[in-house]
Design a binder for these strands. Structure first.
Lengths: 205, 205
DNA sequence: AGATCTGTCTACCATATGGTAAGTGACCAA
DNA sequence: TTGGTCACTTACCATATGGTAGACAGATCT
């Protein structure tokens, strides 16, 4: 039985396994990822994976937990930004894009969560739930004070979420639209999304 | 070798297979769908499936082709709507929601397309490519004539796409937000999305 | 030094999966 | 009647998959 906790800092074996699993789950999908393939990529035997994570599902849970924590941390940080309505929304969107540039797999996993029904998705949502509540309250307050156009806060959140995730993960469609997966394109997409959101949210005084 | 073409109208066996495959691909995903499970659901032996569709991949292609055609037809219909900028955008969004109410699996498959890289996604995108081009041109023209706020047409399209698909397929997240998958909720989501898009697109005169 | 623990490995295994080969009954044209 | 096609079936098979059991080398403890 492994002694070290799930945190597994540095380039320890469990951390490397988590990294590889995240990457594969996010791109190929959970079911399409085999422990053998994962192990081969790590130049390790499959049993090593099963030593640290007793089953594939446990591995998935570990990946979800770590990713959710990371995501949560990044969002918490940007939510701590002071400022009136739009500035804060912009800060959050920017931080998500920053995250996407540094760790695209993370956003890919988020996208995958929808497919894996409960209990995986439930676990993921549970961690982010407080953030959603905070964001929802924030939006509502901003609308009440007239800083933003009035919308249904939760559905507005879903819209922002969908748009950002779509912009960051719809690689196939992006390619079809002639948008290459470059850093420059990412910046352009960020500009566009901010432009759109501002149009939809900011009240013209 | 099957004689009838891929159209397979009515409740013929190949049509039933396509229906079941579409449903399963859209919800469980392609890799997670086994021919055995599919056959069991249809109360038919697996070989019957392989009789009509020589391999799983061929089945996927058939599902994609049929779905893309159906989607294309629906969109073509709504695009034929005459009218100035916003009215037409609204018509398209409404038709997609109508489609989602009647055939949720179709939208689910669209969502799955992103995951299945080439060649599956390519095939799908290829069919819808002309529509994308038309829509893009339409948006650009409307912006040129000042009926709509200026945005990057293709990225605007991606935004609309992401938002609509998200609103219609993010079941887990919707549940977490307290939005039940009812018809009433669907109407509310449609209203919200139209509201948002109007805010972002329509120029205040 | 000997015992124990840790991390990884080799050796298997039951099951599931996509796919091949060949058979069977119904129908139909000659 | 007979031969052939059609739709579908039973009988298999090679491979991949998640997982179990246990060996083995090195470090750590007593």
């Amino acid at each position: 039985m492994p002694t070290s906790n799930g945190v597994a800092d540095g380039n320890s074996t469990p951390a490397r396994i988590l990294d590889a699993a995240l990457a594969s789950f996010a791109t190929r999908g959970y079911e399409a990822t085999s422990l053998d393939a994962l192990a081969a990529g790590l130049e390790v035997r499959k049993q090593t994976i099963l030593y640290w994570f007793p089953s594939k599902e446990v591995l998935l849970d570990a990946v979800i937990d770590r990713s959710a924590a990371e995501l949560s941390l990044a969002l918490e940080g940007s939510l701590a930004t002071a400022g009136t309505g739009w500035v804060r929304v912009e800060a959050v969107v920017r931080s998500v894009f920053r995250l996407a540039a540094r760790q695209p797999e993370l956003l890919g996993l988020v996208r995958e969560m929808g497919r894996l029904g409960p209990p995986a998705a439930t676990r993921f949502v549970a961690v982010l739930e407080p953030l959603v509540a905070r964001a929802s309250q924030f939006l509502e307050a901003e609308m009440d004070s007239g800083h933003m156009r009035r919308h249904e806060p939760r559905l507005l959140l879903l819209t922002i979420y969908s748009t950002v995730i779509g912009m960051l993960t719809e690689v196939e469609l992006l390619r079809a639209l002639g948008e290459e997966p470059t850093a420059r394109s990412l910046v352009r997409r960020r500009a566009e999304i901010l432009d759109l959101l501002r149009s939809a949210l900011v009240t013209v005084p």
